[in-house]
Amino acid sequence: MPVSVGINLLVGLLALLVGFMMFRSLPVLARAGGPVLFPLLSIVIPARNEAGRIAPLLRSLQEQHYKSFEVLVVDDHSTDETAAIAHSFGATVLHNDAIQSGSGKSAACWHGAQHARGQWLLFLDADTALADADSLTKLLGSYRQRGARGILSLQPYHTVHRFYENLSAIFNVIVIVGMNVFTLWKTRFNTAGSFGPCILCNKDDYFLSGGHHKILGAVLDDLALGQAFLDKNLPVRCMGGGGVINFRMYPEGLKTLVEGWCKSFAVGSKSTHPIVMSMIVLWISGAFISTGAFVSSIASLNPAAMALSALLYAAYALQTWRFARRCGNFRKSLFFVYPLLFTFFAVLHVYSLFRAHVLHSVKWKGRKIEV
């Protein structure tokens, strides 16, 4: 067996093992119990030109068994029918007329929180939808079981409808792993913040932390808000949203997908613990190294090398698919050519670094955001 192939196999195997340590598990909420009473809940939904996406969320809220909540849709300078659709589902529509720095989402959330009547606040992105009629009960019950303090945030389960949306697979894995708390060591590392699409907290803790007003200039409001709570010694808990809340990311097309992930990754990696980041880098490198070992073994016509490298390639494909399936319903067949997914991730990540460190700006929903 050629020495270079043997080295690639060893490094690839090491990266495969590191992958298991990097993403040990993704806990989800338990099933809902019997009928219970919770404080009045205010659901705040920041929305900018979400006419094509907000209806499933509002419909899923109407279908909940638990009914003690108000829905506040904060219209953030929309130019479409977002407000009219929200009205048609009985939501209270607030208009955020203030011109703030940053992406606008934090200003909209702050505006909604100031008008909320509930003792608990649930911030939901407009592209999410609750999975079933017991989702709110599961979420609120879990928050109460954990002391009803700080933040409980869920990363929604990504539902894929069109082929190009599968290109988000590696990004979903890295977003979750980058929160630091899903490794083999679980809580050894502090969380990088909170997941942005679904954040539950109580009003007292929210205003004590400064809430979204404190982070108006932040590009990644989810990480910044979580850190604001941590700065006040308030707990921040992150979990998977499977069986509770779903979302469909960037259904508008590939261009929006590129802009969205570029915005997220331009500054997001700064909050990941160096040890976790090192594991991520090794795991991503292993994807290319295992592929290189497979190609080199074929070129060398060495039967032993070909067999071992094929096993490593297959193991990497299976591991990557299992990681991705924790995050969304990504197409299984695509992981037979997983190097394409990693290549797309690497190219877009380099582009995001260029936008952040050379152009010092990213684009999102018609806005130019300084970073």
Rank of each mutant, 00 (worst) to 15 (best):
L200E: 10
L234M: 12
L184T: 15
F195E: 08
V236C: 14
H212M: 14
I199P: 01
L234Q: 10
T159K: 14
F171C: 03
E165F: 03
E165G: 05
L225S: 10
R162F: 12
T183L: 15
Y206R: 05
D221T: 10
G210V: 05
K186Q: 15
L225A: 11
L184G: 15
N202A: 13
G210P: 02
L234R: 07
G217D: 09
K186Y: 14
G196T: 02
N202M: 13
M179S: 10
F229D: 03
C198F: 00
V175Q: 01
L225Q: 06
T187E: 12
A192R: 01
Y164W: 02
Y164L: 06
L167C: 01
L208V: 05
W185Y: 14
L167E: 00
G211S: 08
H212S: 13
Q155N: 11
C198I: 03
H161Q: 12
L225T: 07
M179N: 06
T187H: 12
G178M: 06
L167P: 00
C201Y: 03
K186W: 15
L184H: 15
A224H: 02
A218V: 05
I215Q: 05
N233G: 15
L216M: 13
E165K: 04
A224Q: 06
G211H: 02
F182A: 08
F229T: 04
L220Q: 09
Y164G: 05
A169V: 05
L167K: 00
R188Q: 13
Q155R: 09
L220G: 05
I174A: 05
L216Q: 08
N180T: 00
R188Y: 11
V181S: 11
A228I: 06
L208G: 02
Q227S: 13
T191H: 01
D204A: 13
Y206K: 07
I199C: 09
D205S: 11
A218D: 05
W185T: 14
V181Q: 11
V175E: 02
K186L: 15
Q227P: 06
